[in-house]
C-alpha cells in the first residue's frame, strides 16, 4: 500500500495513496500505524482523499489504529472522505466512533 507520512509537530498525517483499501492491502496501514505507536507517535490523521473504496478489512485496520491510539492517550482522526467511503462508515455505524473532518486544516485544529 502506498502511504505518505507527514509529521507536523506531535501530529502525524498518513495519506493513503490508494484507490482501494481492502483485504489485500489494509494490513500495511495497520503495520505502519503500529510502527508509529512504537515510536511514541499516537496522534494520527488518516487522510483518505485518494480512497474511493473501503471494505470491512479497511475499516478493521482503522478501528485497530483508533483503539491503539486511544490506549496511549492519543487520537486517530479521519479526514477528506469521498461520499461512498463516508457511506460505508454510516452503513457500519462507525461514523459514531471516529471523528471525521472535511479538511486536513480542520482536523489539525481539532487536536
Amino acid at each position: 500500500m502506498q502511504l505518505n507520512i507527514v509529521e507536523q509537530g506531535e501530529i502525524v498525517k498518513i495519506e493513503v495513496q490508494e484507490e482501494r483499501m481492502d483485504a489485500h492491502n489494509s494490513g500495511d496501514l495497520k503495520e505502519q500505524m503500529l510502527q508509529l505507536f512504537d515510536e511514541g507517535k499516537c496522534n494520527l490523521i488518516i487522510d483518505l482523499t485518494a480512497v474511493r473504496f473501503v471494505d470491512s478489512s479497511g475499516l478493521g485496520a482503522l478501528v485497530s489504529g483508533f483503539k491503539n491510539a486511544s490506549a496511549r492517550d492519543g487520537n486517530l482522526k479521519l479526514c477528506c472522505l469521498q461520499p461512498q467511503v463516508r457511506s460505508m462508515f454510516e452503513l457500519t455505524r462507525l461514523h459514531r466512533v471516529f471523528e471525521i473532518f472535511t479538511s486536513v486544516e480542520e482536523t489539525m485544529e481539532s487536536f
Binding site: G60, V63, R93, L94
Partner: peptide
C-alpha cells in the same frame, strides 16, 4: 461491537 476489528463482512 464498535471497537471490534473484524466481523462486519458477512453482516454487510
Amino acid at each position: 461491537k464498535d471497537t471490534d476489528e473484524g466481523g462486519r463482512g458477512v453482516p454487510i
